[in-house]
Simulated scan of single mutants.
Amino acid sequence: MTDTEATTTGPPGAPPVGRRRSGHRRRPVTARVPPVVWLLLLVPLAIELFWVFWPAFNSFQLSFTRWYGVGPAEPIGLKNYQNLLHDPIFKTAFENNIIWAIAFGGLSVIIGLALALALNRPRRGVGVYRSAIYLPMVFALAVTGLFWRVLYQPDGPINTVLAAIGIDTGQHQWLADPNTALAAILIAALWRQAGYIMVLYLAGLKGCDPTLEEAAAVDGASWWQRFRFIVFPQLRNVNTVIFAVTVIDSLRTFDIVWAMTRGGPYNSTQLLSTYMYQVGFTLVNLGYGSALAVVIFLLAIAFIITYLVRATREE
Rank of each mutant, 00 (worst) to 15 (best):
S131T: 15
V143I: 14
A73G: 06
G10I: 01
K79C: 01
P265G: 11
P11L: 13
V199W: 04
F229N: 12
A293P: 05
V128H: 12
A181H: 03
P12H: 02
V279S: 00
R25Q: 14
T2I: 05
L113W: 06
V43F: 07
Q61M: 14
L78S: 08
I242K: 11
L117R: 06
A140E: 07
T312I: 09
G220K: 05
V218M: 02
P75Q: 04
I98V: 15
I47V: 15
V279P: 01
L299F: 10
R228F: 08
A215L: 09
I242G: 01
P122A: 13
G127D: 09
V126P: 03
L78Q: 07
G287H: 08
E5I: 11
L78N: 03
P75C: 08
L308W: 02
S222R: 09
L146I: 14
T312M: 04
F229D: 10
A114M: 13
L62P: 04
E314D: 10
G263D: 00
T65K: 12
L235S: 10
L119G: 05
T7N: 00
Y81W: 06
R20G: 09
W67K: 03
V138R: 13
V37S: 09
L78I: 09
G156F: 05
L107E: 15
A244G: 14
Y81I: 01
L113P: 04
A140Q: 12
V231L: 01
I304F: 02
T30H: 15
I230V: 08
P16C: 01
F254A: 06
N120F: 10
A14E: 15
F232G: 03
L182I: 11
W223C: 13
A221L: 06
D168K: 10
A184H: 00
P55L: 07
I304G: 04
G166Q: 01
A311S: 12
W191R: 08
F303V: 04
V150M: 06
K206I: 14
G204Q: 00
R313D: 04
